[in-house]
């Protein structure tokens, strides 16, 4: 039986008079994949920032894997298994794809930094880095630098680095932003395959409804800091008020 990986209750964060997150509560099962949608300014990114520890809430609690992490620092949350990637790609631009993956694996394994031993002798690290590359479909570009690969591959590299930390919960902020329409489904396929292989639960902020419909089985709709819908995409996304909020003026 799977337990609850995440329990958020009464989470609140105001920026001055702006109610960015205004009393949000939800729970997630282990291994579950949750999509968060909503118009700009709905509080999606703030919610992700609160859960990952980039900002602290005004009130409310966050329980992760059975413990209260509400006041834990960003670094401590990485330690307990919460990791995230950003809207903007975050990679080492001067390192090759393989080196990018290796450094992430190496730092998790807390391996030595011997000056005389070659990288090739780093068996455990290299094997895991290569496995990550294969799962993310980056095998062809191992020796290239991030500036020399496609936007989709770059995004996958970013996410693979996050996954190299072996988190229990991964948060992805708009994984297909900046990726061409042609590439977005392929990127999502590879991201979800890797997430599944690592058995990580995931929260994915997404604005692209095509992606949401295709890949989600649970959607959380946010509007003005509150959750206004939570359930299967076929039920939630067809509701009249949700459609109006998501599509905005163009729909009205």
């Amino acid at each position: 039986m799977l337990g609850k990986i995440l329990q958020v209750s009464g989470l609140r964060k105001y920026f001055g008079g702006v109610k960015a997150v205004d009393g949000v509560s939800f729970t997630m099962d282990e291994g579950e994949r949750l999509f968060i949608v909503g118009p700009n300014g709905a509080g999606k990114t703030t919610l992700v920032n609160l859960i990952s520890g980039y900002i602290m809430p005004d009130s409310g609690t966050i329980m992760f894997d059975g413990r209260d992490v509400t006041r834990l620092s960003l670094a401590s949350r990485v330690g307990v298994g919460i990791a995230r990637s950003f809207q903007l790609v975050n990679v080492f631009w001067g390192l090759t794809v393989l080196e990018n993956l290796s450094i992430a694996v190496a730092s998790r394994l807390k391996v030595n930094t011997n000056m005389f031993k070659s990288l090739e002798s780093y068996k455990a690290v290299l094997e895991e880095a290569l496995e990550l590359a294969e799962l993310s479909g980056l095998t062809e570009v191992l020796d290239k630098r991030p500036s020399e690969i496609s936007q989709g591959d770059r995004k996958l590299l970013d996410i693979a680095i996050t996954l190299a930390l072996k988190p229990k919960l991964v948060m992805l902020d708009e994984p297909t932003s900046g990726v061409s329409t042609r590439e977005k489904f392929e990127v999502m396929d590879r991201v979800l395959k890797t997430l599944h292989r690592f058995g990580a639960s995931s929260i994915i902020v997404e604005h692209d409804m095509e992606v949401v419909k295709k890949y989600s089985n649970r959607v959380l709709v946010m509007h003005e800091g509150k959750i206004i819908g939570d359930g299967a995409p076929s039920d939630i996304l067809s509701k009249e008020d949700v459609r109006r909020i998501l599509l905005g003026e163009a729909y009205a």
């Binding site: 670094a75 990485v78 450094i103 730092s107 031993k117 930390l165």
Partner: peptide, 21 residues
């Protein structure tokens, strides 16, 4: 070398390196 990988990562982006642990 093993050291070199970590050294270059720190030289390039200390913040991200420390975020990776």
């Amino acid at each position: 070398s093993r050291f070199g990988l970590v050294f270059r990562a720190v030289a390039m982006d200390p913040e991200m390196s420390s975020a990776l642990g």
